[in-house]
Design a protein around this nucleic acid. Sequence first.
DNA 1: CAGAATCCTGTGTGATACTG
DNA 2: CAGTATCACACAGGATTCTG
Lengths: 115, 115
Amino acid sequence: MAYTQNVTDSCLPECGVARFLALLNGPWATLVVRELLSGTRRFTELRDALPGISPHTLTNRLRQFEKYGIVVRTAYPEIPPRVEYRLTPLGEGLRDVLDAMNTWALSIPEPVPAQ
Amino acid sequence: MAYTQNVTDSCLPECGVARFLALLNGPWATLVVRELLSGTRRFTELRDALPGISPHTLTNRLRQFEKYGIVVRTAYPEIPPRVEYRLTPLGEGLRDVLDAMNTWALSIPEPVPAQ
DNA sequence: CAGAATCCTGTGTGATACTG
DNA sequence: CAGTATCACACAGGATTCTG
C-alpha cells in the first residue's frame, strides 16, 4: 500500500473501513462532502466555504467523487458558466459517517492534546 | 492548512469532522484503530494484522494516538519485552464511527469503479 | 520482541498564473 | 465563473539496518 491505495484501476478493498479510506482520502475530501451535505453547491461556493483549499485540490476531489459516484456534476451552458455539484444517494449516505465523527469529537474532553 | 494540519502544537479545529480528520490522519491510522477495537494487542500482533504496514509507521501512529488519549501503552518489564496497546474510553468511542464507515461501504453498488 | 535510526518515495496539497 | 497548467513542498509511509 503506497501512501494512498491506488483504487483508480483496481477493485476496492474488502473491508468497509478500508473502502471508506480509499475513497475519502486526504484531509480535504471529507470536508468537501461535509459542505455538499448542506445541499447543491457551485464551485466557488465550495471554495469559499473551505478556507485554504486551492482550486487545484477542489477540482481533484470533485473529479474523484464524480468518478466514484458520490457526486454529480451538472454544467449549464451559460455565459458565464455555471456548474453545480450535488451528492448522489450514495454520497448522501455519508451523512451518517460524518455525524458519527462529529459526535465522537464532542466526546473529546480537552482541546487535546492538553499537553 | 498544510498537507496535514499541524495539530501537535495547536488546538483542535472547531468542527467535529475536522477534528476527527486531524487526529486520524493518513490511511493507516483508522485501520490501526480498527484492529484495537477487537481488544488489546501487542506490537507484533498489530503489525501482522495490518499487512504492509512498516514498524516505522505503526510506531508513529501508536505514539500519536497515545498522545491524544486514544490509546494506552503498557510495557511489561520482562525479557523479552512485552508491550500492549489498548483503546481508552475515548478510543472505544470510535467504534461508532468505524461502524458507520462499514455500513456506508456496504451500500456501494459495484466494486467501484465498475470499469 | 519492540522498537529506533536513517534514507528515500509517493501524493495530496499550495501558490501562482492563465484561459474558454 | 470554473476551472487548467506548472512548479514546488510537506508529510505519511516504505525499506533497511540495528539494538536493548
